[in-house]
Nucleic acid binder design. Structure first.
Lengths: 232, 232
DNA sequence: CGCTCGTTTGAGGATGGTCAAGGCTGGTGG
DNA sequence: CCACCAGCCTTGACCATCCTCAAACGAGCG
């Protein structure tokens, strides 16, 4: 549901088959693009709520999250906000096929990003086929996640939405105890709900013994099956 | 809002700048990918409601719509359906970075498609940089449209959703009189609403003099401003 | 310690969903 | 050519979910 684009775990390897034994547990091998950014990137810190880039601005840089969390969103005239995804450590963001960003990006909490010029990556892509392939793969992967989110937004109840969100977060953190970097408002704007409904649903899930809430930003998944049923 | 991916009008030309005078009115020049499909494609007919490919199936072919209309959708266990987009003549569909389709595709009405093997396109892409670039551009374009649809699904009222849909259809047909190939149910499943709500909203918009409905499948946009306001 | 921001909870209301029935239309066959 | 039928569309009445408005609570930080 979330827009996780960690390239190291991305199964897609278009235009070339995966040869040899795969060791899915060992995730040292990154995508070529991920490696390139790791090598060439400049580390930049962003404070909580600081803008990384704005909707409509020229897409000059590509970013890789080192630490923290980033939200990608769009705002309507009257202030309604739709968050399209959260980017966590390892994720790459800011890739655009067009010369302008179609969304805004902000740090959810204090975050560190590796920053590389888009033109540098493009120059590399022109020579290294794998880099170009990675760019496409990442865009395709984002497409897949946004399409899943669409089903959530179009066809699921508040209960199901929150369950889907928690399951995805659990999956991404590879842990049943989830530390949420984002506020209830962020979650609401991601799931197409209000803060109140998100909060109430958390409480309900706790009462149903599906989750525990030691503190508001920490969720322990107790009954994954229950959540999965809700995920439909 | 809709997933129009007619390559001829796509503004994005990543990895190379657009040189010389642009003649936006003359749209003969297609994308390289579009040309390739036009040259190599086999014409295949699909009857109304016939499946073109199914969710999870190997992605063997790439398609270009000659006539008719295609819907891309996903179905949840309990039958809830979310339509992700409609493809109209000129649009290319079926491109996947992974080896399997993530959605199902069906003909909304009797349609003709040009069909090319994915492997053929990929072989071409390995040699012709522009083809690879087109593949990426199309994926990015789909991403953009789905992201817009997300805002609609997550943050807009029924009124606004239908208005957005009609404006997009008007834009795509370059005409204020829209012939809808899809049913109210299709529209509902696209906008995350029920048939009844879609129908009621059409009637309301007619009463507000925003549109005319000579017959149920033909919409004449009367007051575009009114619709645009609703589009938020 | 107190303030502020975020979260929770409550009460009431509106939007859109559900269930049900009637009407239109285009296609088919007599 | 007309009549009927089936599928689609519209409309109505009622209801559930989620939103809105409001207030209190709690946790982190100066």
């Amino acid at each position: 549901m979330l827009t996780q684009i960690e390239t190291g775990t991305f199964p897609a390897r278009p235009l070339k088959s995966i040869v040899g034994r795969n060791t899915p547990s060992a995730e040292k091998k990154q995508s070529n693009l991920g490696e390139a950014i790791a090598l060439m990137g400049a580390a930049v810190d962003y404070d909580r709520n600081n803008e990384i880039y704005g909707d409509g601005e020229p897409s000059e840089y590509i970013y890789k999250v080192v630490s923290g969390a980033i939200r990608i969103y769009k705002i309507l005239d009257d202030g309604r906000r739709q968050i399209n995804g959260f980017y966590l450590p390892g994720d790459i963001l800011g890739i655009e096929a067009t010369d302008n960003h179609h969304f805004s990006a902000e740090a959810v909490v204090k975050s560190q990003l590796l920053v590389v010029k888009r033109s540098t990556i493009f120059a590399l892509a022109a020579r290294q086929h794998e880099i170009a392939s990675d760019l496409w793969s990442l865009t395709a992967r984002e497409l897949g996640h946004v399409q899943n989110l669409m089903i959530t937004l179009g066809r699921k109840s508040a209960h199901e939405r929150v369950a889907a969100f928690l399951l995805e977060m659990a999956k991404r953190s590879r842990n049943l105890t989830i530390e949420l970097p984002m506020s209830r408002q962020d979650i609401a704007d991601y799931l197409g709900l209000t803060v109140e409904t998100v909060s109430r649903t958390f409480t309900q899930l706790e009462n149903e013994r599906a989750i525990e809430l030691p503190v508001s930003r920490r969720v322990v998944v107790r009954n994954k099956n229950l959540l999965s049923q809700l995920d439909a």
